[in-house]
């Protein structure tokens, strides 16, 4: 992750002479980190309000007000941790557009739970992409985990059905389901996901414990469309933000939380299985202001 605002102290010099250009430049920097114009101006309105009301004349105070606004948006009301059912198996459904890092995230997630002594089963419901199963199998093998898969182009619903049944029979704690990448605008493929969700709900007799959208942090304003349309179809419980070791500023997460109130739950980077952690709004905000 990179800084949200470059040269804040330099921009600050403008504040005294030309306030408008100070605010404009601040907004520009925020949009450059992929925050939407609406969200950026909402944040700045609050900060401006504070600055003029309290007659603030100090950069540190402006900065901390800005941070506070962002933390406020990113903060969750409830628990941002993953939902573990008291009636195992817990089921996580992982979805997202093509190439965002679903499979790698699943391996990392599985590894995280395995380290905590949980018995994990991976369900290979991406029956579409060439070698998707083999990629997942590679991870299942090095992690020594159960995996359920069917033939290529078979019905993903059937894979999911089998996975949950096997998990029940074997006393598995957690089932993580990998799905094929799909564009949020593809009607048929979104319907397919709804069906998968229905299959799970019927097998576990409750809502799916987590439906997580995997999102590439280099994505621009389209991230909001992704979150919105996946959410409309599936009622997401959270987002996994991937590739945070890139130079993008991940401003999209602020927009998504602000506009759609979907919490960011996990953050990943790099190719190592250990590179996954829970999302911490305060730490994230400190990071983009460091």
């Amino acid at each position: 992750m990179q800084k949200l605002i470059k040269n804040l102290s330099y921009i600050w010099n403008k504040f005294k002479n030309d306030r408008k250009s100070f605010w404009d430049e601040l907004e520009e920097q925020m949009v450059t980190s992929d925050i939407s114009i609406n969200t950026a101006s909402r944040i700045l309105e609050e900060v401006k309000d504070y600055v003029y009301r309290e007659n603030i004349n100090n950069l540190e105070k402006v900065k901390s007000s800005l941070k506070q606004q962002i933390i406020e948006i990113l903060k969750c009301n409830g628990d941002s941790k993953l939902n573990i059912s008291s009636r195992p198996p817990t089921v996580f459904l992982i979805v997202g557009v093509n190439g965002v890092g679903k499979t790698t995230s699943i391996a990392k997630l599985a590894n995280m739970f395995k380290k905590n002594g949980k018995k994990v089963l991976i369900s290979a419901a991406d029956t579409y992409r060439s070698a998707a199963v083999e990629q997942l199998q590679y991870y299942a093998e090095i992690l020594g985990m159960d995996m359920v898969y069917h033939q290529k182009f078979s019905d993903p619903g059937a894979v999911v059905y089998d996975s949950v049944e096997k998990a029940k029979a074997r006393g598995t704690d957690l089932v993580i389901i990998d799905t094929a990448g799909r564009m949020q605008t593809s009607y048929n493929l979104m319907e397919e996901l709804k069906k998968i969700k229905k299959v799970i709900c019927r097998r576990i007799d409750r809502e799916v414990d987590e439906i997580l959208l995997v999102m590439d942090s280099t994505t621009g304003q389209n991230a909001r469309n992704q979150a919105e349309l996946f959410n409309n179809s599936l009622s997401l419980t959270g987002i996994i933000l991937t590739k945070t070791d890139s130079t993008s500023k991940g401003g999209i997460v602020i927009t998504i939380k602000n506009d759609l109130n979907i919490p960011i739950k996990l953050v990943t980077k790099g190719e190592k299985l250990e590179d996954i952690c829970y999302f911490d709004p305060v730490r994230f905000t400190e990071l983009i202001f460091s």
């Binding site: 190439g99 304003q221 991230a223 993008s248």
Partner: peptide, 10 residues
């Protein structure tokens, strides 16, 4: 990726 944000140029 056509969905890339402001980073595309970098």
């Amino acid at each position: 990726d056509a969905m890339t944000g402001q980073e595309a140029v970098n």
